[in-house]
Amino acid sequence: MVDKALGTGGRKSDKDLKIRVKSAKGRKVSSTKWLERQLNDPYVARARAEGYRSRAAFKIREMDEKHKLFRKGMRVVDLGAAPGGWSQVAAKATGSTPANPLIVGIDYLEMDPIPGVILLQKDFTDDDAPAMLIEAMGGKKADLVMSDMAWPTTGHRPTDHLRIVQLIEIAAAFALDVLAPNGTFVAKVFQGGTEHELLHMLKRHFKTTMHAKPPSSRQDSAEAYLIAKGFKGSNDTVPGEGEYDR
């Protein structure tokens, strides 16, 4: 059940108008807090109003506005695409169409079709997933590989951080295989200090690397994004990088 907290009189403040969610039998406290946060999140409301499948669409939009990630006609791979918000933004920004799809998304969750996007229902960490993505791209190189992937959290922050770094390493290895020269790699991280080795590797393969915290990323979250731009290409990779040079 949802109600609105009322003031004692006069003009109601924003705090007064905040939607409160009453506890329900059988609902965990964490679930109640999540529901209350969603109902009061302006980006959730904007996503519904603008036809996006999730508030995450604004994260990639904001990063694009600041760092110029997209351009017309570029090819994009969206790792961990569900429910499809990032792919929606990419399709519009690149001019992708059903007749000439430029976006390929992959996720183990089922997704409704998106015009101009090839969607694969597959766990990206499966051994055959990279080959499926390359086939879906028609063997062409990608200009941008973007990843909003994250494992379900365990509640143990160091463990969760190590798991997300593992995902980024897999995504980075794929990006080095499929990116065209001067391509871009974007991936979600959780700040915690153990991604330094990964960042060092990216600096060897890309001209510029940086962290980004888009305004729509909740400020109380450790979530941030790594952006690596200007892929040097396979001829400029550095020997001895192990799996990243496959």
Rank of each mutant, 00 (worst) to 15 (best):
K4G: 00
A5E: 14
L6M: 10
T8M: 11
G9V: 06
G10S: 10
D14I: 03
K15W: 10
K15L: 12
L17T: 14
S23V: 09
K25V: 13
V29A: 15
N40W: 11
P42F: 07
P42I: 12
R53D: 05
R55N: 10
A56P: 06
M63T: 02
E65L: 08
K68G: 04
L69F: 08
G73P: 12
G73N: 11
M74V: 09
V77G: 01
A82N: 01
A82S: 04
A82W: 01
P83D: 00
P83S: 02
S87L: 05
V89M: 04
S96G: 07
S96Q: 06
T97E: 06
T97W: 06
P98H: 12
A99E: 13
N100T: 14
P101F: 12
I103Y: 06
I106V: 14
E110S: 01
V117I: 05
V117K: 00
L119P: 00
L120F: 06
F124G: 01
D127L: 14
D128T: 14
A129W: 03
P130N: 10
M132A: 15
I134E: 15
E135F: 00
A136M: 02
A142N: 04
A142Y: 10
D143L: 06
L144P: 03
D148L: 09
W151A: 08
W151V: 04
T153S: 12
T154R: 01
T154S: 15
T154H: 07
H156L: 04
H156K: 11
H156N: 12
H156G: 00
R157T: 12
R163Y: 14
Q166V: 03
E169P: 01
A171G: 13
A172H: 03
D177R: 14
P181S: 05
T184A: 07
F185T: 10
V189S: 08
F190V: 07
E195Q: 06
L198R: 02
L199V: 14
L199W: 15
H200G: 10
T208G: 00
T209R: 04
K213D: 12
K213A: 13
K213L: 08
P214S: 07
P215G: 08
S217W: 10
Q219D: 13
Q219N: 03
Q219P: 09
E223H: 13
E223M: 06
Y225G: 02
I227M: 05
A228K: 00
K229N: 07
G233R: 09
G233V: 13
G233E: 10
G233P: 08
N235C: 00
V238L: 12
E241I: 02
G242E: 07
E243Y: 02
D245H: 05
R246M: 03
R246L: 03
